[in-house]
Nucleic acid binder design. Structure first.
Lengths: 212, 212
DNA sequence: TAGATTGTTAATCGATTAACAATC
DNA sequence: TAGATTGTTAATCGATTAACAATC
């Protein structure tokens, strides 16, 4: 297999996701060109080719990329050929919504447990997923081979709980709390901050908005 | 007031949000330096000063920035001194979760209506917000002075519904569907794509992960 | 063959940082 | 005053794009 180079900018990764999404339901026997992907994404064709060559040579000069092969390569590059076993920490509005979302499993992310601090919320089974008391964290994570956590708890308990997760060996955290988590270097995190997105939208609208 | 310059990179906006968040609950009489903000955010102090000077001169050489003044300036820059009246389109898991989230109102984003395609879901009142049939879109948007929409509907109906919103005069859309919406130039959108974030996290973990 | 399209180099563009005079 | 910190310029760094030889 193609050798993974040392350091890839995180800027390319969402673009790889987009390429993957675009070819996801195309016929594996078809070919797709960097220009096709350019049109579909809005990135330049040069950008597309560059992004892909960071990881190897997947194309055929004069022909383009074979959809099936590219799908497989992107899947491997994005780590979607692994088995991700996911815990949801916090069963408030957002945690419950994610629990009910079927799209994740399809992409290879399987939600296998949920946790809450509130005894009144624990013990329930939602969508086939049991809600455990946070005190059971280590036991349940280990027993179920969980290797990813979605953090959907309030801001002020996020750092402490993240620390707990790290102690239990979790190395991948998707954080929805509006805090910059401090994490040891081996632990990877991504943040989704909805308030920040609303503010960006607000900014855009005000800066070059309608009747200003 | 300070003159807004022509073109600001969208890269600065999330940083402004962070500065705002950090000083949000500090005493307005205090001073904060670019170095303080650097430590709190992880950006360089030069970055902090540069970001702010795009919008004017807010600091006092030798002193730093006055928290109260900076808070006010950032609020204005981000458009949070406006009144945002928000509709949620789609009352599935995610739409319902956003409906129940109290944090938005505090930041000036007031959810005033929800919409769904499914007649069985309309008519209900959740958290004080009524769920209307999508057929009522124009009437309800206009009657309530709604100027922002959160799009939480499945992928395949997202573009059509966004077109409807645009026709009704909506100029700001926060899109949760995993599609690149095609929108006329006056309409601003931001995307939150949870699957893409999961994929980025997966990539990070696999590329420079544990035992590779 | 002629036409299409890759992979890659070099040129361009844009964003970040270092450094420092001006200011309090 | 001495020390601190801004605003801003110039230097650096990194990412994007244009261009084209190699390939099918």
């Amino acid at each position: 297999m193609t050798r993974e180079p040392k350091k890839i900018s995180m800027k390319v990764v969402p673009r790889l996701s987009q390429y993957y999404r675009i070819i996801y339901d195309r016929d594996s026997k078809d070919m797709v060109s960097s220009n096709d992907l350019s049109v579909a994404t809005g990135f330049t064709a040069a950008q597309v080719r560059k992004d892909l060559t960071y990881f190897g040579q997947f194309g055929y000069p004069g022909k383009g990329y074979n959809v099936g092969e590219l799908k497989g390569s992107l899947k491997r590059i994005l780590g979607l050929d692994r088995r991700w076993r996911v815990a949801i920490i916090g069963t408030g509005n957002l945690g419950m919504a994610l629990l009910g979302y079927r799209g994740f499993r399809e992409q290879g992310f399987e939600i296998v447990a949920a946790f809450d601090f509130d005894k009144r919320k624990t013990g329930r089974v939602i969508n086939g997923v049991k809600v455990f008391d946070i005190g059971q964290l280590r036991r349940v994570l280990e027993k179920n081979g969980i290797n990813m956590a979605l953090l959907t708890i309030p801001r002020n308990s996020a750092q402490n709980t993240a620390d707990e997760l790290v102690k239990c060996g979790i190395k991948a955290i998707l954080n929805f709390a509006p805090v910059n988590l401090k994490l040891p270097s081996g632990v990877k995190a991504r943040n989704i901050d909805m308030s920040m997105e609303l503010e960006s939208l607000s900014f855009l609208s005000v800066q070059n908005g309608e009747q200003e």
